[in-house]
C-alpha cells in the first residue's frame, strides 16, 4: 500500500479515535468516580447528533446547533442523574439495568421522531474543503476533529492535574469515602461530572455526524467500543481514555481496510492482551480484580 494512503487511513483512524475519546472520557470518569457503567451513554451521542441535525434543518447553522445540542444533552444527563440514577447509587446491578432500559427508551425515541432511514449531518461549510497533505487530499473537517480531540485532551489533563475539581476527582476515584470525609458535596460533584460526560458524548455525536453518518444502532456500536477503551485505558483516567481511544480508533479503521470481517475481533484482541498484561488497564488506578 502506498504510504500516502496509509497516512490517510491513519488520519481517519485518529479522527475516529478522537470521537471515541470524547465518549470514553466521560464514561471512564463516571465509572471510576460513581461506579456506574452508563449503558445509556451511547444515547447521549445519539441525542447530540440528531438534535443538531434538526437544528441545522431549521437553518440554525452548524456551530450554533452544536452548542445548543450539547447544552440540551447535558441537561438530559442532569435530569437522568438527578431523578433516576441517584435512587440506585451503590447498587451495581440496578444501575446497569436502569441505564440499559434508558438506552432502549432513547434509541426507540430517536427512531420514533427521526425515523429509521440513515441521515447525514452536513459538514459545516467553513470546513468543507480538502487540504493538500504532501500530495494527498484530506478533508479539513477530519483534521479539525483531530484538533478538537487533542485540545480537549490537553484541557482535561490540565483540569485533572492542576485544578481543585481535578484533585477531587482523583481522590474520589481512589477512595470514594474520602470525598465525604473532605466535606465535599458529593451530589454536586456527581451531577456535574455526569453533565460533563453527557456533554462530551453529545459533542462527539455532533462532530461525528458528518463523518459517521446517523442511524439507529450507532449508539450501541460506539458504546461497545468505548467500553473496550475504558477497560483498555483503565477506569477513571482521562489519559487512559485518550491512549485507549487512539489505539481502538486506529485498529478499528486499519482493520476495516485490511481485515474487514475481523474488525471488532481485532479490537477485542487488544483488550484481551491488555487485560492479560495489565488487569487494571494501561493506566488504571483502581483495583478491580
Amino acid at each position: 500500500m502506498a504510504t500516502s494512503i496509509l497516512f490517510m487511513h491513519i488520519l481517519n483512524g485518529l479522527a475516529y479515535g478522537m470521537l471515541l475519546f470524547m465518549i470514553a472520557a466521560g464514561l471512564s470518569i463516571i465509572f471510576g468516580l460513581m461506579n456506574i457503567v452508563n449503558l445509556a451513554h451511547g444515547a447521549f451521542y445519539l441525542g447530540g447528533v440528531y438534535i443538531a441535525y434538526s437544528l441545522v434543518q431549521q437553518n440554525l447553522g452548524f456551530w450554533l446547533a452544536m452548542i445548543a445540542s450539547i447544552v440540551l444533552v447535558a441537561g438530559l444527563g442532569v435530569l437522568m442523574e438527578r431523578f433516576l440514577l441517584e435512587r440506585v447509587y451503590g447498587k451495581e446491578l440496578e444501575q446497569v439495568l436502569l441505564t440499559f432500559g434508558l438506552s432502549f427508551i432513547f434509541a426507540d425515541l430517536v427512531k420514533w421522531i427521526w425515523g429509521t432511514s440513515p441521515l447525514a449531518l452536513p459538514v459545516p461549510s467553513s470546513l468543507d474543503v480538502s487540504l493538500d497533505m504532501g500530495g494527498t487530499m484530506f478533508p479539513a473537517y477530519r483534521l479539525f476533529v483531530i484538533l478538537v480531540g487533542c485540545l480537549l485532551a490537553v484541557l482535561l489533563w490540565y483540569m485533572e492535574n492542576k485544578t481543585r475539581i481535578g484533585a477531587i476527582i482523583r481522590a474520589g476515584v481512589d477512595d470514594r469515602q474520602m470525598l465525604s470525609a473532605l466535606g465535599i458535596n458529593i451530589k454536586v460533584v456527581f451531577t456535574s461530572i455526569f453533565a460533563v460526560g453527557a456533554a462530551l458524548a453529545g459533542l462527539s455525536g455532533v462532530l461525528g455526524g458528518p463523518i459517521m453518518g446517523m442511524y439507529v444502532g450507532i449508539d450501541s456500536e460506539i458504546l461497545v467500543s468505548s467500553l473496550v477503551i475504558v477497560v483498555v485505558g483503565g477506569l477513571g483516567t482521562w489519559k487512559g481514555a485518550f491512549i485507549g481511544a487512539i489505539l481502538v480508533g486506529l485498529v478499528d479503521t486499519l482493520g476495516r481496510v485490511w481485515f474487514p470481517s475481523l474488525t471488532m475481533a481485532m479490537v477485542f484482541v487488544i483488550m484481551i492482551i491488555v487485560l492479560l498484561i495489565k488487569p487494571n488497564g494501561l493506566f488504571g488506578r483502581g483495583a478491580h480484580a
Binding site: V37, V231, M264, F268, H288
Partner: peptide
C-alpha cells in the same frame, strides 16, 4: 478473575465481538 462491572463490560465486549464476526462473515 474480573468481577462486578468489569466482568459485565468484558462479557459485553466479547459478545459483541462474536456478533461482529457472524455479522461480517
Amino acid at each position: 478473575r474480573s468481577s462486578g462491572a468489569y466482568f459485565l463490560m468484558i462479557t459485553l465486549a466479547f459478545g459483541q465481538m462474536l456478533f461482529a464476526i457472524f455479522y461480517k462473515m
